[in-house]
């Protein structure tokens, strides 16, 4: 698309959407959001960028192959699930670590559940970007 306004706007929108998608991913456990929604927003961000520039530029911005991104996501999700059996619990049983937890404060939680959600995020993001880029290639 050769509209300057769209191009400038798209660049701005791309950054905002990307940050927003990660925000949605991270807050997902306690507020509406999560890996699926975050991944979809991220995909929208890249599509906005792809419409303003071109496929090659989008791939450059993405740096990695979207298919690889999706497969990495699936692997991360699987690995987070395998943590459970490592500590003799069920497959995909959530594991939690509270950094600096005190009597009153739960501290900074790190969990396999968040890892899993990141896996979901990457899979959805990668799969959809791959689809859209492949489709645009055939224009």
């Amino acid at each position: 698309m050769n509209s300057l306004i769209y191009k400038v706007g798209a660049n701005l929108l791309f950054g905002i959407l990307l940050v927003f998608s990660i925000f949605m991913l991270l807050r997902g456990h306690n507020e509406p959001g999560g890996g699926f929604i975050g991944g979809l927003i991220g995909a929208v961000a890249f599509i906005v960028y792809a419409l303003s520039e071109n496929i090659a530029a989008t791939r450059r911005v993405l740096r990695v192959n979207p298919e690889h991104l999706a497969v990495t996501g699936l692997t991360i999700a699987l690995c987070s699930g395998l943590l459970g059996p490592l500590v003799q619990e069920g497959l995909f049983a959530g594991q939690w670590l509270f950094l600096g937890a005190t009597e009153t404060d739960k501290g900074w939680p790190i969990s396999s559940v968040l890892l899993f959600d990141i896996g979901v995020y990457l899979t959805v993001l990668g799969a959809i970007i791959a689809l859209v880029l492949e489709m645009e290639r055939h224009l």
Binding site: H29, G34, A70, L74, F92, F116, V120, A127
Partner: peptide
């Protein structure tokens, strides 16, 4: 499960194996 969003907790914790299968389907379809 230390989560306030019940839907998300179901997705990523209680029924994580299901979700794993589902994202695998998304990837396969793509």
């Amino acid at each position: 499960a230390y989560g306030r969003n019940i839907v998300n907790v179901i997705l990523v914790d209680f029924r994580a194996l299901d979700t794993f299968g589902e994202i695998a389907v998304v990837l396969t379809a793509a």
